[in-house]
Simulated scan of single mutants.
Amino acid sequence: MKPDTLVTVIVTTYNRPDALELVLDACLAQTDRHFEIVIADDGSGAPTGELIERTARRSPIPIMHAWQPDEGFRAAASRNGAIALARGEYLIFLDGDCVPQRNFIACHRALAESRMLVTGSRILLRQRLTAHALERRLALAEQPASFWLRQRAAGQVNKVLPLFLRLPDFAGRRVDGFVWRGIKTCNLGAWRSDIAAANGFDETFVGWGHEDADLVVRLHNAGVGRKNGFLATEVLHLWHPEAARDREGPNYAKVLARLADGTTRADKGLEDRSVLT
């Protein structure tokens, strides 16, 4: 990707302003500065809106807020609402509890390639470390190696190697065929044109589960390749209780059916919002 190509970072959130604050602070500390932020807000209350407004006032990076009413878990619709505001040619999806390292956007930019998407991975923080970070507003991406080695020894983080080692783009990053493992829109980059051609996220997916895999399946069916962003684009995922997963089974079955039948477009997506693509 060219250095001057505008990137839009789409950050999903729901009623967790303390975590979102850490994420936004880390976004504003990025080494790559040619980006904007759109918050995909699935119906949060006033504290989240107030945080976004305060951060936007002090930010040199444009920050926009795409809010939708709280009608249950509607991540697909929330992300489409954010895409509708995005101006970037390349979209990076990041969850509001996933703190990026300082070169997160730079690494995504380095891996971006025409007709390819990039799926990143996570470093999982345990409950005690997460509480400590939130209480002290700890700049996690700024902590020294000694801090992370102590946390690893204490069992408060599942791995530390990605904090110290970066690998460049190479042939081994390419994923052959469709592989379910590693698909997470808490850390995913793709070209807006490819997402638009697939009609975005499918808003018929409601409840927790697999609206991200559905997008990747449809892009795969349309001939969009995939790279693995391991040892380059890892994010620090704050602990949280698991969401209710009562819709996981039906959502999973729908993705499998689309993989088999070659579906490329969402049943209800961007075009239903009259988004200019």
Rank of each mutant, 00 (worst) to 15 (best):
A171C: 13
V235F: 13
G189D: 09
R74F: 03
D97M: 01
G269E: 04
L231G: 13
P144D: 00
C27T: 05
L188R: 12
R181Y: 09
E113Y: 01
S114P: 03
E242W: 09
A257S: 13
A131F: 06
N158T: 11
H237W: 11
I61Q: 05
G209Q: 05
I105T: 02
A106V: 01
G223S: 12
R128G: 01
L270W: 01
G225R: 12
G43Y: 14
E234L: 06
L165R: 15
E271G: 07
H34Q: 10
Q156T: 05
A82C: 04
V38P: 10
A46N: 08
A198R: 03
T263G: 11
G172H: 09
I183A: 00
V38I: 11
F35S: 04
V255L: 05
N199H: 11
P250G: 05
L161A: 15
T264I: 03
A86M: 08
L94C: 12
R137Q: 02
L134V: 01
L124D: 14
A232G: 14
G209L: 08
V99Q: 00
A145I: 00
G209T: 02
R137I: 00
A154F: 07
A253S: 12
F201D: 13
G177A: 07
L188C: 15
K184T: 15
L256R: 15
D70C: 08
E271W: 06
P162M: 14
E135R: 15
G209P: 05
L125C: 05
G155H: 03
P100K: 03
D25L: 01
G72C: 06
H240M: 08
S44I: 08
A40Q: 13
T185K: 09
L161T: 15
R79S: 04
P100L: 01
I61F: 04
L111Q: 03
K254T: 10
R166P: 05
L134M: 02
G189L: 10
F201N: 12
L163Y: 09
E234F: 07
D267M: 11
T8F: 11
R137W: 00
D246A: 12
A82S: 07
A222Q: 05
S193V: 11
N199M: 10
A257M: 06
G120L: 06
F73C: 11
L94H: 07
L163W: 08
K268A: 13
R79F: 05
F230I: 15
P47H: 03
V99D: 01
Y252W: 13
